[in-house]
Design a protein around this nucleic acid. Structure first.
Length: 595
RNA sequence: GGUCCUGUGGAGCAGCGUGGAGUGCUCGCCGCCCUGUCAAGGCGGAGGUCGCGGGUUCAAAUCCCGUCAGGACCGCCA
């Protein structure tokens, strides 16, 4: 190394040592006769002081330099308690410029928080400068730490790390594939994997018993703050297991991650809740338990009403504590919020509080034309106290619950009900096995079921109760699927797979997959299953979401080294780019093979 | 495919509703001064076709239409 020490690691013990440091000029304070430089390297920042080196006046921020000098204790009163190196400074005897720098496009210094007001476009465009900053860089370090803990836990349990192909066939998940043309077979394309699902099942047939991989996955779908076209999963599969093995492993892994990364002790085991209970109580299959605000079911209460809005399959509500003080504008805001989500709207009722005067003197709301009996008993039925507001939604059961679930989250955020310091994990189990094919085809009548599709994927096993009947009653069949949810975020999910041919065939029958189609799509897996497949199952965790959660950010871009923009492009390299006519020809892009 | 927000010297913002000279703030940048600062301080200075195109108007950063880029959300995505 061309240096002797790390700048940020120097302490009182080093006083008197002659050191050679390298790094970047974070800032300079030039007093004419004495000049201070903050020298930054990966370890942190140290103050360099120069009294008689004429060259230092020419230095500028972000120049890469080498400093030779002696570590000195700072005089009392000159110490900086905010700096871990604040008790010492390096008295420079020589400064060498390793390379000069343009003025950076945004301030760098060193100690900015992760999102310090610089426009993201600019940060991603100059990500290599962004990462000179402590906050953004520490997010990547957190991610590396997470990967390290993961490997430690997986190796402790004798999991085998196997790399599966990135150039492969389409996997049976629902997302669009990224396609890669193949020069040697014009007109034929690889798909980049949406997950290593089929390969890890093959590895179970192969008898590996315990597989894991930190695998890049690709889905050509639209963006969200927590979704990007390429992302990383911790992918796990085990043989001869049941759900308890997956739960125990996950809880051990999470407990160790939270302990080592954040110093937080997670209580285990995580509570479990069924999918439908979660929908009923929270309107979501990934409920945030850091606040209460459980949904109220008023379907019974509205049975037989003349009030048309509430003549619906499901009537539910969120009770907003202290919401009687809502202004008309705020209530209109909720209407707009609901409509922006494609709902017809939400009804509201303010319960007056005589003590504070909030909500006036009588029940007010958009539903006061409701039968008097029903109206006056409504606050009690909803569990609303004086001073509360009740926000209603009515309609088909599932969409109404989902709307109320989103409302629950929005209300909690708006009213500051989320206990931000808490970590609340849970398992959501017993998800439906199938859901109706959402058909935009006008030929399919409103409400009619055009067919069924696997909620999870078609290799997910039914629960014992539905093993014999799921093909006759796909609507109610439950799957041996599980999601792990933390603070309202889906951090991972998996299932116990089907390993019996007969059962697998019935699933294909339900989703309308013919033998030929199944054979052509994943005949290789079915063939493998002819050779004594073990009972198996697994789980996959979104590593980016895990890292973002542990790094304390909502945006998974922050824990990716070179994230994509929401257009799907790479702001730094400018990819994707058009290809030349010659490349098209070589890759056989325009060739249409006989199907 | 859809809805909404944003785009103003290098960075972050204000200005836009109710049109009137590129006006302002914090930082950065350049020069000079300065021997104990902590993202130093003082004085001076440079730097902007207000994303782009069109329209309305005597006059557009401001109003209208289109478009591009970025972001959030719905659809989609287990």
């Amino acid at each position: 190394m061309i240096r002797t020490h790390q700048a940020g690691a120097l302490r009182r013990d080093d006083v008197g040592a002659t050191v050679v440091l390298t790094g970047w000029v974070a800032t300079r304070r030039d007093h004419g006769g004495v000049t201070f430089l903050d020298l930054r390297d990966a370890s942190g920042v140290v103050q360099v002081v120069s009294r008689d080196l004429p060259d230092v006046h020419a230095l500028r921020n972000e120049w890469c330099i080498k400093v030779t000098g002696e570590v000195g204790a700072r005089k009392e009163g000159n110490e900086n308690p905010d700096l871990s190196t604040g008790h010492i400074e390096v008295v420079a005897t020589a400064v060498e410029v390793l390379s000069e720098s343009e003025t950076p496009p945004f301030p760098i210094h060193g100690s900015e928080p992760i999102d310090s007001g610089v426009d993201e476009t600019t940060r991603w465009r100059y990500r290599y400068l962004d990462l000179r900053r402590t906050g953004p860089a520490s997010a990547l370090r957190t991610r590396a730490k997470i990967v390290s803990v993961i490997r430690r836990v997986m190796e402790r349990h004798e999991f085998v790390d196997v790399e599966t192909p990135y150039l492969t066939r389409s996997t049976p998940e629902g997302a669009r594939d990224f396609l890669v043309p193949v020069r040697l077979q014009p007109g034929h394309w690889y798909a980049l994997p949406q997950s290593p699902q089929l390969f890890k099942q093959l590895l179970m047939v192969a008898g590996l018993e315990r597989y894991y991989q930190i695998a890049r996955c690709f889905r050509d779908e639209d963006f969200r703050a927590d979704r990007t076209p390429e992302f990383t999963q911790l992918d796990i599969e085990m043989s001869f297991l049941d759900e308890e093995d997956v739960f125990a492993l996950t809880e051990e892994l999470f407990a160790e991650l939270w302990r080592d990364v954040l110093g937080v002790e997670l209580p285990t085991p995580f509570p479990r809740i069924t999918y439908w209970e979660s929908m009923r109580r929270y309107g979501s299959d990934k409920p945030d338990l850091r606040f209460e605000l459980e949904l109220v079911d008023l379907t019974e209460h509205m049975q037989g009403t003349e009030f048309r809005v509430f003549q619906a399959e499901h009537v539910g509500a969120v009770v907003v504590p202290g919401g009687a003080g809502y202004t008309r504008k705020e209530l209109d805001g909720w209407q707009e919020w609901a409509r922006s989500r494609g709902a017809k709207g939400i009804a509201w009722l303010l319960v007056p509080d005589p003590a504070t005067g909030d909500g006036g003197s009588e029940l007010r709301g958009s539903i006061t034309k409701l039968e008097a009996e029903r109206l006056t008993s409504l606050p009690a039925a909803a569990g609303a106290a004086p001073g509360d507001a009740i926000l209603f939604a009515a309609g088909p059961r599932r969409t109404t619950l989902e709307l109320l679930g989103a409302l629950r989250n929005a209300v909690a955020r708006q009213r500051g009900l989320v206990r931000e310091e808490e970590w609340r994990f849970l398992w959501v189990v017993d998800a439906p096995m199938f859901e109706p094919v959402s058909s935009d085809n006008p030929a399919v009548a409103e409400g009619a079921v055009a067919g069924w599709t696997a909620v999870h994927h078609p290799f997910t096993a039914p629960t014992e109760a539905y093993a014999a009947t799921f093909h006759d009653d796909p609507e109610h069949a439950l799957a041996r699927a599980y999601d792990v949810v933390g603070n309202g975020m889906e951090l991972g999910g998996g299932s116990i797979r089907i390993h019996q041919r007969e059962m697998q065939q019935r699933v294909f029958d339900v989703i309308g997959l013919t033998r030929d189609e199944a054979q052509s799509k994943f005949g290789f897996l079915l063939e493998a299953f002819n050779y004594g497949p073990p009972p198996h199952g697994g789980i996959a965790f979104g590593l980016d979401r895990l890292a973002a959660t542990l790094a304390g950010t909502d945006a998974i871009r922050e824990v990716m080294a070179f994230p994509k923009a929401s257009s799907g492009g790479d702001p730094l390299t400018g990819a994707p780019t058009p290809v030349t006519e010659r490349q098209r020809k070589e890759a056989g892009i325009d060739v249409r093979p006989e199907l």
